[in-house]
Design a protein around this nucleic acid. Structure first.
Lengths: 137, 137
DNA sequence: ATCGATGCAAAGGGTTTGCAGGAGC
DNA sequence: GCTCCTGCAAACCCTTTGCATCGAT
């Protein structure tokens, strides 16, 4: 992080970043990224995916979402926003209507604190899984 | 979780729960609990700490706070509230003045969703570490 | 006496890292 | 050609689990 190394282009890194941009609604894990790209990039290794996710995070281009069930998930959107984690299907959705300013205002922090980021995660059952549950009974 | 087993008293479990109650402000990890109790409970094993933390969580007596840096932290308070995670010292504090109702109101969820819990984590530098940082420069 | 809880150590599973070869500049 | 990046596999680290024994009821 912020070391003197010069960044060099790599196809792998570009594809990984592109994939993250294209799957804003999935919030994929490292393994999900790997599975999605391994057919397209011959001989891609999981280690490379991890290294690039970490690098992109250090560069501030992506954001690591608080991990669920011990697995880190990634988001190409770096601004504060709200996530909904479905316990049943494991998907992480954005909650687009959330009012971030209102949330910030509800959290008064002393002036001696420095706030870098804010993560609000709702846990429950998503729309699909709720309907499945109702239908089953 | 919710299996037919009958709970039996154990000194270890009692102490672990007591320790969590007494360290509401620390939000300790399993290892922190272990380190704090091993001198007091002869031959305590880390596995037992993990087993009991999980059991207490399943019983709804404690809450697992979203893990930071890959390590789970525990909280004896089970109601929704706001945490402040300090990147520098690793402490997790409560943000007592946070207005949970206001936060809930800022997050409109479709009626087809079921919300079980809400986790808001602020990340930054706590008061102490901010002052340290300023003093250093 | 029964069966849950413990201690110990080994196994799991996600993530990181060392190394030799390959690719960008 | 100098470095960074990659693939591979081993190492790491937190957490879980199998097993024999201990302990609560």
């Amino acid at each position: 992080m912020a070391d003197g190394k010069k960044l060099r282009y790599s196809q792998q890194r570009e594809r990984i970043y592109e994939y993250l941009l294209s799957s804003k609604e999935h919030h994929p894990s490292a393994e999900m990224v790997y599975d999605a790209l391994r057919s397209e990039i011959q001989g891609l290794s999981l280690g490379t995916v991890y290294r690039n996710l970490r690098l992109l995070e250090d560069l501030g281009k992506i954001r690591r979402v608080a991990s669920h069930q011990g697995i880190d998930r990634y988001d190409s959107c770096c601004s504060d926003h709200v996530h909904f984690f479905c316990q049943s299907c494991g998907y992480i959705e954005n909650v687009p209507k959330a009012d971030i300013e209102k949330i910030r205002a509800a959290v008064p922090l002393g002036s001696s604190y420095q706030l870098f980021k804010l993560d609000l995660t709702l846990t429950g059952l998503c729309s699909k899984c709720t309907i499945k549950e109702i239908t089953k009974e």
